[in-house]
Design a protein around this nucleic acid. Structure first.
Lengths: 227, 227
DNA sequence: CGTACGATTGAAGTGTGTCAACATTTGTGG
DNA sequence: CCACAAATGTTGACACACTTCAATCGTACG
């Protein structure tokens, strides 16, 4: 089911324009596109970072693995987000398509070359890195100190802000993905969502539970303690 | 109060030289010093960020609080470290002196002014922010997915790398600080250290347990799974 | 339409938290 | 420098939030 957003002049967070680069203004910078099937790897941890990416459509998870398979997802990247922006020459996460996903690519080196001479690009690069840092800092608080209900509430609020269309949260990622993002098990995530449903804080579209309706954002925000 | 930096050729991690700024090369940038007593606040979360800081001696903790008092320490800043480098105009952590601590101050605005025209300063600013981001990313994995023993092992390895003098770890921070850094309780930290002692992985100087000797770094590294 | 995958729910287990007692160290004032 | 008080650290017993294991259900998609 498609929801058509007619005109979208709204400035998205982390658009390529934020870098001060478009194919128009910088014909040197190539903006290629590529599509990944659900579950496919976009790049692996410790691989050399040749490109940075912007999600055109779909969703991406960035994660680290421990040697025994435990996984921590550091971030989900949704439409408009830029990811793969590492410093140093290699990626610090593995990135995979959560669903079929189309991304734009920018050669990392060309970006750095531009940044060297263009203060605007350099500053925006810094601002984006800082935004990522800020997200990581907030997530440390969540992972270190919040209860399962607070984590799930925070997650729903975050997703609500980022991908709500028509008041419905159509989460592209599985319970396992959510769990690995929140430092929980998928069962605990499921139980927390059930509990929020019982509490009347959220509802579902139809009988499926993939599409969530937030009925009481205020109560949800109260569950996730202010930091 | 002005402090003249005489000669400091030693390349510290994150020294002010890394910013490409010394009082010699940039007489515009003032390098003041200030000393904080143990436990005193250096700046508070959401306060306007006027300065950035470099630890001259001592140690600093940066943390966030939930409204009910739960605390997550995001980082410890030791001699040589630069902290308080936020983007946006306000601090995202509260910073406190763990012990009596002397810091150097740099006016944030003057730094940004220099960065605007000096690509070297700008790049180093980005590099330092990226280093912070990298630490936060690794810490998310620890907080989300590691056991208490793995966390404490990782902590000891980190501190060993950063402040070992003469093979002895003299931790400046309390068990509570360590716990709030690792997302545990102080009792769990204490038990983990006792366990590492029983396992022969670490010992103590004298009868006190404030000074820790790492007897088997290899075994300690094995406990903290590679990521 | 059936098979497979993901989600939910229940029951039982466990790692870490909580509460409490005691030990040790640090700080303070005489 | 000692004596005491206060703060910090250790250890034990018990509690509980979350995990683990397992069964069932629902939905998607060949």
């Amino acid at each position: 089911m498609f929801v058509r957003i007619t005109t979208d002049p709204a400035p998205r967070p982390h658009s390529l324009n934020d870098l001060g680069m478009t194919s128009d203004s910088n014909p040197m910078v190539s903006l290629n596109e590529f599509t990944y099937k659900k579950g496919n790897e976009i790049y692996g941890e410790k691989e050399p970072a040749e490109y940075i990416y912007q999600v055109k459509s779909g969703a991406v998870r960035s994660y680290k693995l421990l040697s025994d398979g435990r996984r921590q997802i550091g971030a989900f990247h949704l439409a408009g987000d830029i990811f793969g922006l590492e410093n140093g020459s290699s990626h610090r996460f593995t990135a995979e398509a959560v669903v079929d996903t189309t991304v734009r690519l920018i050669k990392r080196q060309s970006l750095e070359t531009v940044a060297e001479s263009d203060a605007v690009v350099a500053r925006n690069l810094l601002r984006m890195t800082t935004t990522n840092l800020q997200h990581a800092e907030d997530h440390m608080l969540l992972l270190g100190r919040k209860t399962s209900l607070e984590r799930v509430a925070a997650f729903l609020i975050e997703m609500d802000k980022r991908l709500t269309a028509a008041g419905v949260l159509a989460l592209p990622m599985s319970r396992r993905d959510i769990a690995d993002y929140l430092g929980l098990t998928l069962e605990t995530v499921s139980r927390a969502i059930s509990r929020l449903h019982e509490l009347g804080i959220l509802g579902f579209v139809g009988n499926t539970q993939r599409q969530i309706v937030l009925l009481d954002r205020q109560q949800l925000a109260n569950l996730d303690l202010q930091n």
